[in-house]
Design a binder for these strands. Structure first.
Lengths: 205, 205, 205, 205
DNA sequence: GATGAATGAGTATTCATTCAT
DNA sequence: CATGAATGAATACTCATTCAT
């Protein structure tokens, strides 16, 4: 590898690093103030630059949201796909999916919050159609998983499966609003306890 | 009742009715688009009047949100207080509180969505301090209820009580995002099935 | 005079009285807040009625200003004309004109303030052309009076006559801003002392 | 001085220059149309930019008025203080103060007009409290100056000192409404003739 | 890479005015 | 005479975006 080559790569890496840095900042601000209520200037302030300077890195405010959300979703689906391809039982799959979900929250917390709060609003634009696609795939995955669990005799059959799906989905993902990396309970701790509740309930046996 | 008396009352009632009508419209639009992303003009359009005309009835966009939220919270706490004063066991109280929560969602769906999505953002303003107060009281109520349930031998003691609180709170209230009055499942139906999951889990016994 | 006639007259008089009352209120508010900064609603509030109700009495905000100003100017010029037609010396005329000016201020204080502060602004509209006419006539009257005074040997000839005119005009009329009917000094008292200063100056002789 | 240093200073100076330029334009428009009757767009038009662009430089319309007025008052008081600290007789002080007043009018004409016409209105806001403070200090200065003049045997004692104060104050400052820099009479010319009238009156001796 | 200044479309809000009751 | 509700144009102000330097 020639020095020149290495240099160019170094620059590219640095540039990508700066980009990621700015996106992390933007995600944080979007998550805490809401996407619509956040001004580009606030993002820039948080990044220590002036408003206009963001446009050297990104086309628009929307494209920041786009990149934040698609990065998170790609990463999440990669993890889900690893689980789904592992040939586990329905019950073990459910556990693994929930664990992976909390790991996603741990890794992409602001992006998850953004997704939760703004995806309905953003999805009206063509550019964010993939949000709906992801949601649809997500629902199909869960419903078939729950069906399989009933077939395998692992899950109760007396409950509305759509309701169970929403129950689990909501509970898990909304946790991004209060989860804190490095807090008292790790993402895996929370996953474990949530799974206990999903599976056993809170009643003293 | 003299005709004059009836007339005056009729006018007052009509006025209050118009106000409530406009607030219901505003809540609907705020809930579906997000408070910040909603323009006053959109609210007015939905109400069939012009943007400026809203200001005959309300001081500001903020005061609409204020009235929507405080009406909902007052109503919800009245229902909660009736339950809490009834002298029920922890388990029965939990059931009743969850049922009342879904009834609140049924009655104030857009207000609940608004509360969910915007209260963090709005609460930065002094005017909305009561949102934080309500939240704090809500948490205290739940934590002491869960403690009492453990003492009464009704609930498991091996789980983090704060986690249980958040688990239930999130699951119940986020349901406002998809709940539809007059849908396949009534609010009471959903409450019943959610309670089954909270208490027993989804595992086949 | 038939009862019917008296009645109609009574009504007409009452109506004119109400009109004058409202105009007095409006003038007061215009004077204290400025015409542009005053809303029709503020005038109505001060009159104890609702904003829209003013339009039963007046065509527009502008027409209120119009009536206030023209009433004042008509009255002032009537007084001036009486003085000017009396065949007095220049010096006695000057004294009488200043006295009449302060009497106008006493009688029409808010109108004078309105005239002072807004006539330049209002006079851009065709409807208020008479303000400019009045001003022009006023200036001519003063300049010829001052000239006559010099000819009669009553006034100094070493000063710029336009400057003297502005000096006196400004000093007299601006007093409307602080003059209070029923205050420590009557309009005639102030006129007397102002005349002493105009004519003799403040130097100890 | 390094080139870099000079460059940075050049930019800072340019920025301050642009600000001052815009303020001068705004003052001109405010003075000619009245503050309330002037729209931000009119100011921007006069400056050759768009309405919104003004907000890059100033927080609000009010803050423009603030800066215009405080700049004028600071400058005026600096001049007054130089005079008051010079240890002159009451009569000479009066002359010097009047001269400085006309120089202020010459230098800050639109600001003075703004001050005259809008200070009562603006001073209702906390932000403009300094207008009242200045007025109060102004009155105190004049009253004690007039008192001293009487003690020194320079001024007549038979006139109401508050009336004299208002007489002079009004006459001098209202002149800003018609004074034109570069007109037939310079500020010093006018001051001289006004002083002649104040001190000697217009009567032929 | 970043800045400073501007754009221009949009946003909440105001307000003179209208009009059926 | 007065009210209550609305209109619609204007207003101060915001903000995503652009671009020469």
């Amino acid at each position: 590898m020639s020095p020149r080559r290495r240099d160019a790569e170094g620059t590219a890496v640095a540039r990508a690093g700066r980009r990621a840095e700015l996106l992390a900042t933007a995600a944080e601000v979007f998550a805490s103030q809401g996407y619509s209520a956040t001004t580009v200037r606030q993002v820039a302030d948080a990044a220590g630059i002036l408003g206009g300077s963001l446009y050297y890195h990104f086309d628009s405010k929307e494209s920041m949201a786009d990149e934040i959300l698609s990065t998170f979703l790609d990463d999440m689906w990669a993890a889900y796909d690893r689980v789904l391809d592992a040939g586990l039982s329905a019950r073990d799959t459910l556990e693994a999916v929930v664990v992976e979900s909390f790991r996603s929250i741990d890794k992409h917390r602001p992006a998850v919050v953004l997704y939760q709060n703004e995806s309905k609003h953003l999805a009206t634009s063509e550019r964010f159609r993939y949000l709906l696609d992801s949601q649809r795939r997500f629902e199909e995955m869960w419903l078939s998983l729950l069906d399989r669990g009933v077939e395998e005799g692992a899950f109760r059959a007396d409950l509305d499966r759509t309701l169970i799906y929403r129950f689990i989905r909501d509970t898990v993902w909304v946790a991004a609003n209060w989860y804190q990396h490095g807090g008292r309970l790790s993402a895996d701790d929370i996953a474990k306890q949530y799974l206990a509740m999903f599976l056993e309930g809170i009643r003293a046996s």
